[in-house]
Design a protein around this nucleic acid. Structure first.
Length: 835
RNA sequence: GCGGAUGUGGUGGAAUUGGUAGACACGCAAGAUUUAGGUUCUUGUGAUCAAAAAUCGUGGGGGUUCGAGUCCCCCCAUCCGCACCA
């Protein structure tokens, strides 16, 4: 019986080779366009280290792709590399190599690590965003955006990452720090390239509604908040003794009668002008800026203002003048950079008014203390008196418009996407700056030069001795190339379209995109909720308006998989310790390999820095790929955080061995053509249905649980069943687990059916609905809602019979005369209510 | 501060959407075969109780209902996102 031992090494090696050959041509795709499924996992950055988070992400994707294939879909399932970016440049600076060689070596390395996992990727579609083929096509898109007016250059305060030595987009600043470097971001006045994502603010917001139920709610909410729409009005305040006006944005025009001051941003034009003439104000403004950048928690920052000595006229109250303050809490890049203060009904204005002794006038009635921000009847507001807040807003806006001093206005929190980076390892922005012609589109392609030096500070492209000196494509005069490169999120905003035509001579092949888009399921981490996922939505809309594609959504469905977590450990010397280097002493104490005592720390995301990682390579060697794949989708739903548990991994390994053992017994019985019962036929249909429903919901932990139940049933009936029934049931079981454990499934399928066609081309077994529904049901018998017993009976038995059966069961324990009421729910319960 | 999510055995998690709470696993305990492989196989395992019976039990407290993990109200805790957004 030596064949009973499952040799996962040999079996997995055999089938992995086969899986690597999977490919679907665009011709096939177009032929089968009615039944396509585009399954996409967010493409990885080739850092060189493939980790458990990748394994989980790609395993979930692979299971879905293989399952969908069984449903008869033509599957687009590509993989590629998000290969531009800072780490390559940092590595080059540290070790003296070249970002290109570093990146390419990493891709090779990661591919080597990826292949043994048996994923069904279409490697014919592989892309690498740092390749000439990719980024030169991207330059065409950039210039189309430019010609359409979607790209512009403007001087403004931008986020500067002092470690990466480049600017960042707002989305890339998390808690005031650079998203990758973690460095405190500084504000700098620089001239930078931006994309007009704000032109699409409303459509991006509206688009969220269509994604409801298809994208996780928290992602939709995060994007909604990020776009941050608010409706209000612009009101113009006349400056006394001047013909100037200051425009103010407010969402509370109803509180205008309660206004007692005007506050403007230190960066406001008006402030700047005052500062340029007055040293004292210049100092104050400088001080404000320091607070804005150095103070981590803005909550702690004190509200500060400086009276300009100037006043504005209250727009609707005769003879009322409001002082103008320069105030540190007013942001320049939201609204107009100026606000009117109504201290009675705004917490911040209240604090400010108290500090500077400004009038506080209640205009909304309420028993509550000031500041009061809720709803109520307007008071002290002339014609608004008696109205609700909502009514007063509408009335006031109309009034302002009639008087020609204000207009209705919708503001968004979303800012334009700053896309230029002062780095080498990115796509060159194809623009030439000419003294005569200004910014001119460069002749394409613009290649990234290889011969750069990382020795000196700053952007290696700008430091290159010759690269930037060119002739103007328009007038032929000497001109300078743009030396900034594109934000790498630019690449990841359209890669899913390039997979569809990796070698096409234009960026996007419309006829393929028409068939393949949108992506049916995108799987990735939640960390991209407002980065990649917002940019990709924007790109698709912009590309649609440029005529590249017809769809308006990049990803029809989104699954954000949870993190892979493990307990982290520190020794008494404060060093992190790898979990597999820890030994447990008989007294329960933990020690590391040097005998130093170790303590358990938090349960957190696996990360190299905390050493709480498990090497996927090691566990694949010891347990096999299928066991790892099975384990990683068992127990925990894909969207939840996953806690690593090596014991449970052993359980998956044991299960596969058990499967192999039972399989060999089944094989034997099939060979013997044994007679017997055929109860497993029905069992198979029951479980196929349950397992299928779980796959449909991507509740893979449930698919596994039901598949195990199914297997337990087969094992239990092994001796009594007929050969034909056993064969049928086991074939169903193989198909049911195939998406998760494809190697062992293929091996068993081949041996059981002698099929020439591999399992990969098999379809999900047809489910006989009659057989899939139970014919017997268990009825619960309750007294006053408490369980008192159960009985089995034919499905759909009449209520009266159920009632009588329940009474018979209870006749000794309750007095039937005391029955007040009997509730019968068909196929479920009988509840007898007694006094 | 605002917004969102989550809370079920020792652990990961199920629960037909208001109808037998704890499926399926992990762990643990007892036993069997013996294994020379990280075994395998029985049985048990929410708590209280020697046990049956019974009672309690889905973060806490109320409520609706014949019946609540599920619906409603009020708290608490944890996590995440945004954060001077006018």
């Amino acid at each position: 019986m030596s064949d009973v031992i499952y040799n996962f090494r040999a079996v997995e090696k055999k089938w992995t080779k086969f899986f690597a050959q999977y490919s679907i041509s665009n011709e096939e795709l177009i032929q089968n366009q009615d039944k396509k499924a585009y399954i996409l996992e967010m493409l990885p950055y080739p850092s060189g280290s493939f980790h458990m988070g990748h394994v989980r992400n790609y395993t979930i994707g692979d299971v879905v792709a293989r399952y969908q294939k069984m449903l008869g879909f033509t599957i687009i399932h590509p993989m590629g590399w998000d290969s531009f970016g800072m780490p390559a440049e940092n590595a080059a600076m540290q070790s003296g190599g070249h970002p290109k060689t570093w990146t390419e070596a990493n891709i090779e390395d990661m591919k080597k690590q990826l292949k043994p996992l048996g994923y069904m990727y279409d490697w014919q579609r592989e892309i690498s965003t740092c390749s000439v083929e990719y980024y030169t096509q991207e330059q065409k898109i950039f210039l189309d955006f430019y010609k359409k007016g979607l790209v512009y250059r403007k001087k403004s305060y931008v986020n500067w990452d002092p470690i990466e030595q480049t600017v960042l987009a707002n989305e890339q600043v998390i808690d005031g720090k650079g998203w990758r470097s973690g460095a405190l971001v500084e504000k700098k006045m620089l001239e930078q390239w931006s994309l007009r994502i704000t032109d699409y603010a409303e459509e991006l917001l509206q688009g969220l509604k269509e994604l409801e139920g298809h994208w996780p709610d928290n992602v939709l909410k995060m994007q909604e908040n990020w776009i941050g729409k608010s409706e209000g009005a612009i009101i113009n305040f006349e400056v006394i003794n001047s013909d100037e006006k200051i425009a103010v944005f407010t969402t509370r025009p109803d509180t205008l009668f309660g206004a007692s001051f005007l506050a403007i941003s230190p960066d406001h034009e008006f402030s700047q002008r005052i500062a340029s003439k007055n040293e004292e104000f210049a100092e104050f403004i400088d001080e404000c800026k320091k607070i804005a950048t150095t103070e981590e928690s803005i909550e702690k920052a004190e509200k500060k203002g400086k009276f300009t000595g100037l006043y504005v006229k209250h727009p609707v109250v005769e003879d009322l003048q409001l002082p103008i303050y320069i105030a540190n809490f007013v942001l320049m890049d939201y609204g107009t950079g100026a606000v009117f203060g109504c201290p009675a009904h705004d917490e911040r204005d209240f604090e400010f008014a108290q500090k500077y002794n400004l009038p506080i006038k209640r205009v909304i009635d309420s028993v509550e203390d000031l500041p009061f921000t809720g709803d109520g009847k307007l008071i002290n507001s002339e014609y608004l008196d008696g109205m609700s807040v909502e009514q007063a807003k509408i009335y006031m806006i109309n009034r302002l418009q009639e008087l020609n001093i204000g207009t209705k206005k919708i503001s968004y929190r979303l800012r334009d996407w700053l896309i230029s980076r002062q780095r080498y390892w990115g796509c060159p922005i194809p623009i030439v700056h000419c003294e005569n012609c200004g910014a001119v589109p460069a002749e394409l392609p613009v290649y990234l030069p290889d011969d750069v030096s990382f020795d000196s500070k700053g952007n290696p492209l700008a430091n290159h001795p010759t690269w930037k000196f060119v002739k103007c494509p328009k007038c032929g005069n000497n001109a300078l190339r743009e030396t900034d490169t594109l934000d790498t999120f630019f690449e990841s905003s359209w890669y899913f379209l390039r997979y569809l035509c990796p070698n096409f001579n234009e960026p996007i092949d419309k006829k393929v995109a028409e068939v393949a888009m949108p992506v049916d399921l995108c799987i990735g981490g939640i960390e991209h909720a407002v980065l990649h996922l917002l940019y990709a939505r924007f790109f698709v809309l912009a590309l649609r308006d440029l005529g590249y594609i017809d769809c308006k959504v990049p990803f029809a469905n989104l699954l954000t998989q949870g993190m892979v977590c493990h307990k982290s450990y520190k020794n008494t010397e404060g060093e992190w310790v790898y979990p597999d280097e820890i030994e447990k002493l008989p007294n329960g104490k933990l020690i590391d390999k040097n005998g130093i005592e170790v303590f358990e720390c938090a349960f957190e995301k696996m990360s190299k820095s905390k050493k709480n990682v498990i090497s996927h390579q090691k566990i694949i060697d010891s347990h096999g790929v299928d066991a790892v794949r099975l384990f990683i989708v068992s127990d925990t739903p894909p969207e939840k955080d996953f806690s690593w548990n090596t014991d449970a991994l052993d359980g998956s390994w044991r299960f596969l061995n058990r499967v192999w053992k039972v399989f060999n017994k089944v094989l034997q019985k099939v060979k013997e053509n044994k007679e017997g019962a055929d109860t497993l036929i029905k069992t198979s249909h029951v479980y196929l249905k349950k397992i299928k429903e779980s796959y449909d919901d991507i509740a893979l932990n449930k698919s596994v649980a039901f598949a195990r139940e199914f297997f337990n049933e087969i094992e239990r009936n092994l001796e009594m069943e007929s050969a034909s029934s056993l064969k049928f049931a086991f074939e169903c079981f193989i198909k049911a687990i195939y998406p998760i454990t494809p190697h062992i499934a293929h091996e068993m399928f081949e041996k059981l059916t002698n099929a020439a066609d591999p399992l990969q081309n098999a379809l999900w077994p047809e489910i006989n609905e009659d057989l899939a529904t139970a014919t017997k049901v268990t009825i619960a018998v309750q007294v006053n809602g408490r369980l008192r017993g159960t009985f089995n009976i034919e499905k759909d038995t009449e209520d009266s019979v159920l009632e009588q059966t329940a009474k018979n069961i209870l006749k000794d324990s309750i007095n039937l005369e005391n029955i007040e009421k009997i509730i019968v729910v068909k196929n479920r319960i009988v509840n007898i209510v007694v006094k």
